[in-house]
Design a protein around this nucleic acid. Structure first.
Lengths: 221, 221
DNA sequence: CGGATCGTTGATAGGGCTCAACTTTGGTGG
DNA sequence: CCACCAAAGTTGAGCCCTATCAACGATCCG
């Protein structure tokens, strides 16, 4: 059940992209760069994408991670406002912006759907800004891990959750440094709250305590 | 030229509200509280509004300030996600969410308009999150003052810009404390970059230097 | 004039950043 | 299969920016 089931194939979307009847497959595929003409909307079918904004002086923010079901391409004017690439092999549905607007004229439900997706996007960004505004490093990391578990449907104890992004991505998403992310993850493991069996995944051992930490850092022990 | 010119009068929107043929007038009027049923969209006609999120432990974030032309009420599901009140005497146009969705069915242009307003809202929140993610106190404050000047059409040297929000509001918007805001504003004044003639307003004396500070804190002198 | 709120200024401390070294992981080629 | 190397992650020491706590000054309104 996709938003753009019958969309036309997009123009070649970047290096190493493989187009397949309205879908794009590839690992580390670049969907688009900042400044590119924002003429396509994407819906993630499989895999995880990363939206990155790079400042002139090299500072970086990972604006969002996009999971299956998420729409990429809102919040831009005529040009994309950040880079977007895949962290894993991935598939997307693509649709031209013009086509979608056209389809909206004949199908009012699509308009409502898009509007509510946009509202969801706004809500997500508000949550991020609240996190960045007032939370400590530990609160941010605990909250981030919980949100990953929730998005992948593994929000329970002792389930292996995939962590496709590296420490630098997490740091640049949460407004921290690699070292601070690493130290706090180590601390969480030392307290038995999470486990880090391999690179690229984690396991929640005590969801309740993790939730407490995400709310207030005073759960310190 | 308003988005909801013929909207019906809203239900009484809060204490000290005065309703007037589809408009609401009042100072410190509360438009809505977090948790209220999100059934109305507002367009600011006059005045300045403040959207505030309060955490269980008392921490606060001012999610946004809304100026004339801005739409309030996107990014919520069924219930509003934050409080909203007026910082100054203000007028708004109000429209029921259902009405707007209904109107969208007959007027596809309205749909596109709403979608592009939502996109603008997303962009605003992305900018805020980038600011909160990677910028120093001085960069945040310089950038904030510039954005206020731009929004009120006074983005030039030696114009008096209204500053309707108090230090606490600015601090809670930028993720800083009252003291840090105060100190940095004082520093800007000491360097001749801005002037603070009265409470409730400021004047940009050197827009170029203020712009530099907003980009990189290394303009330190 | 007096009180309350808002804003400023000072002293101190702490959380996270910076710089740096080291360890682990994963991939590559002999 | 193993040695080697680059990239990713961890750990440590020290410092800086901003928060915190506290006192003081300014402004507004009765």
């Amino acid at each position: 059940m996709y938003l753009f089931p019958n969309a036309a194939p997009p123009a070649n979307a970047g290096r190493s992209a493989v187009s397949d009847a309205g879908r794009v497959v590839g690992a580390t595929t670049v969907l688009f760069h900042e400044g590119d003409s924002a003429d396509t909307l994407y819906e993630v079918v499989t895999g995880v994408f990363r939206a990155t904004k790079i400042f002139p002086d090299g500072r970086r923010q990972v604006v969002a991670f996009a999971y299956p079901g998420d729409i990429i391409g809102f919040g831009h004017g005529d040009a994309y406002r950040f880079d977007c690439d895949a962290l894993t092999p991935a598939r997307v549905h693509a649709a031209g912006r013009g086509e979608v607007l056209q389809a909206m004229r004949t199908d009012p439900e699509l308009g409502e759907k898009l509007l509510s997706m946009a509202a969801g996007e706004v809500a997500t960004m508000q949550d991020l800004s609240m996190l960045l505004c007032r939370k400590s490093a530990m609160e941010r990391i605990a909250g981030f891990l919980i949100s990953l578990a929730a998005r992948t449907g593994k929000e329970a104890n002792d389930q292996r959750v995939s962590l496709p992004m590296c420490r630098a991505d997490i740091a640049d998403h949460l407004g921290l440094t690699i070292e601070t992310v690493s130290r706090n993850m180590t601390k969480l493991r030392a307290r038995g709250i999470i486990d880090l069996p391999n690179r690229g995944c984690f396991v929640i051992r005590d969801l309740n305590r993790l939730r407490q930490l995400a709310e207030s850092e005073t759960g310190t022990r």
